[in-house]
Design a protein around this nucleic acid. Structure first.
Length: 270
DNA sequence: ATAATAACCTGAGGGC
DNA sequence: TGCCCTCAGGTTATTA
């Protein structure tokens, strides 16, 4: 599961294969995802893919008849198959194209979603309240500072809140807080504008780097090409509990914040 | 309104 | 080998 970079990589990966192509049919083997997969999808035949875009961690497959909205949840993935590869466990949905390309949706935990709308997908109830894109010019230090001033929660929780800013999940929240030298436990309303600026800069930097490198890869992440995406992005804190801080060599500590494991350096992050 | 907790799922890994 | 526990990239629904 993907955080914003992995979703963006996925979007880019399928875009080249399906834009302008004709989607012959959709085969649904398991419709019990986060929400039931709409049965409308089964009735669609020979529709044209106009564009593949993204908002937050949602992928939009925009067609001439409406938009397919895909969220990968924690364990979802899309792969591109060139022919009729037999389906395995957890291969829930196949998007079958006239040119024999198949986009396959796989999701062991079924926290993901595949939806359909004929309206503007950004107006969909699930997406309507999303915050700004982190790499857009709307996400500024001033904006973040203004949001922090009203909140009593810890800063890590704030930046993972998709209504404040989208796309940041547990890995990149940990990483950006480290490089911004901010403790994840800091109360939002204690942050200065300068600190918010550091955080915005570091969030943008880590996301951009991850997109460039093809996304941080976890053990079950496949690229849309169907290949293992082993770009081992250098994670500085996430998953390094008990190891040495790369900066000061003290031991990185772990603490649960908002039910999510949080790793940081007590010396470098204040 | 805000914040903490539960819930939705499967699979992997560790301890016994 | 198996059972029980904890943990995993996310987000919504419920409770306080």
């Amino acid at each position: 599961m993907p955080e914003l970079p992995e979703v963006e990589i996925t979007r880019l990966g399928i875009q080249a294969h399906i834009e302008g192509q004709i989607l012959e049919k959709i085969v649904i083997r398991e419709s019990r995802l986060r929400w039931p997969v709409p049965s409308t999808l089964k009735k669609l035949k020979n529709i044209t893919i106009l564009k593949v875009s993204r908002r937050a961690k949602y992928i939009f497959i925009i067609t001439n008849q409406g938009t397919i909205i895909i969220h990968l949840g924690m364990s979802g993935r899309l792969s591109i198959l060139k022919s009729n590869v037999p389906s395995k466990k957890h291969d829930h949905i196949d998007f079958i194209f006239k040119n024999k390309t198949v986009i396959r949706y796989t999701d062991p935990r079924r926290f993901g979603a595949v939806l359909w709308t004929t309206e503007n997908p950004e107006q969909h109830p699930l997406l309507a309240k999303l915050g700004p894109e982190p790499l857009s010019k709307k996400f500024t230090a001033k904006y973040l500072y203004q949001k922090t001033q009203k909140k009593l929660i810890m800063i890590k929780q704030l930046i993972m809140n998709q209504e404040i800013v989208v796309g940041i999940g547990n890995i990149y929240a940990n990483e950006a807080l480290f490089t911004a030298r901010l403790s994840p436990t800091r109360k939002c309303n204690s942050l200065t504008e300068v600190e918010c600026e550091r955080l915005v800069d570091e969030l943008q930097s880590v996301l951009k780097k991850a997109i460039q490198q093809g996304g941080t890869t976890l053990r079950d992440f496949l690229t849309p090409e169907g290949k293992l995406g082993y770009f081992v992005q250098q994670l500085l804190v996430y998953g390094r509990e008990g190891e040495d801080c790369v900066q000061c060599k003290n031991i990185l500590i772990s603490q649960r914040i908002n039910q999510r494991s949080t790793v940081y350096c007590k010396t470098c992050q204040n």
